[in-house]
Computed example of a mutant assay.
Amino acid sequence: MADMDHVIIMDHPLIKHKISMLRDIHTGTNEFRTLVGEIAMLEAFEALRDLPMENREVETPLEKAMVPYISGKKMAIVPILRAGLGMVDGVLTLVPTAKVGHIGLYRDPKTHEPHEYYCKLPAPIEQRTILVVDPMLATGGSGVEAVDFIKQHGGKKIKFMCILAAPEGIKRLHEAHPDVQIYVGCVDRELNEDAYICPGLGDAGDRIFGTK
C-alpha cells in the first residue's frame, strides 16, 4: 500500500452503505447512477476540505460583515471518460461554479494499458484545484495517464477521487505521482486476471449507462 498520508480512505457509514448497494448485482441502472452521484458528493465534501478561502464584505439584514468565500480561480472537475461522468453531477452539487474538463481513455483488452483519445481541460488549468474522478482505480494505468496529461497541460494542484480501488492501483498511482492526494471510498482485495477489482462491482461504465 502507498504512503497512507497521501491516501484518504473514506470510513463514513453513509459511504460504506451506498457502496454496498453498488456492489449488489440486483441494483438497476437508474439506482446505480444515483448512488454513484451521491457517493461522489459525500467524498468530495472531504476531498475539497482545503480549498483556499478569502474574506469579502457582505451586507446582512443587520449589518455589514467580512465573511469567507472560496478564493482564486474556479476549481476543475476532470472525469476520466466514460465512467467518470457518473461522478460529475455529485461534485457539481457542492461546487456548481466548477469548470468541467474531460479525458478520454480506453483500455487495451490484451495489455489492460490505457490509450488516450480525447483531452479537453478548462483554462487556465494551472491556477485551478483539479479533481480527477473515476469510479474505479484498478491497475492504476488510467489514473496515471490522466494525471500525466493534466501536468503536461500545466496543472499543478491535482487530487484523484474514486469509489473503489485495488491495492495495485493505489500503489501505481502514488509511485508515479506522489504529490497527488488520493481519495478512496473503499480498498478492495485485489485485481483478477482480467484486471477487474474483486469483489468489486463489475464494469462501472456499463452499470452507470446500462450498456454491456
Rank of each mutant, 00 (worst) to 15 (best):
D3P: 13
M4F: 15
M4G: 14
D5G: 15
H6P: 01
V7A: 07
V7L: 11
H12R: 13
P13Y: 12
L14H: 14
I15A: 10
K18C: 11
T27V: 05
E31G: 09
E31R: 10
R33L: 10
T34L: 12
V36R: 03
A44R: 11
A44H: 13
E46D: 15
L51H: 07
E54Y: 11
N55S: 14
V58C: 11
V58I: 13
E59P: 13
T60W: 02
E63P: 12
A65C: 14
M66E: 15
M66W: 04
I70P: 04
K74R: 10
K74P: 15
A76I: 09
I77D: 02
I77K: 04
V78Q: 02
V78M: 04
V78E: 01
I80Q: 00
R82G: 00
A83V: 05
A83G: 03
G84W: 01
G84L: 08
L85K: 10
M87N: 06
M87T: 07
M87H: 08
V88S: 11
V88Y: 01
V88G: 08
L94I: 14
P96H: 10
V100L: 05
H102N: 09
G104R: 01
G104Q: 03
R107K: 08
P109C: 09
T111K: 09
H115L: 09
H115R: 13
Y117M: 05
Y117S: 03
L121W: 02
P124R: 06
P124T: 07
I125F: 08
E126N: 11
I130G: 02
L131N: 01
L131R: 00
V133Q: 04
D134V: 01
P135C: 07
M136N: 05
L137Y: 06
L137V: 10
L137T: 07
A138D: 07
G143H: 00
A146N: 03
V147A: 02
D148V: 05
F149E: 15
I150E: 03
G154M: 02
G154L: 08
M161P: 03
I163G: 04
I163K: 04
L164Q: 06
A166D: 09
G169Q: 00
R172G: 12
L173A: 04
A176K: 05
V180S: 00
Q181D: 12
Q181C: 06
Y183D: 08
G185P: 01
L191C: 06
Y196T: 10
Y196M: 10
G200K: 03
G200C: 08
L201D: 02
G202D: 07
D203L: 12
D206G: 07
R207M: 08
F209E: 02
F209D: 03
G210S: 08
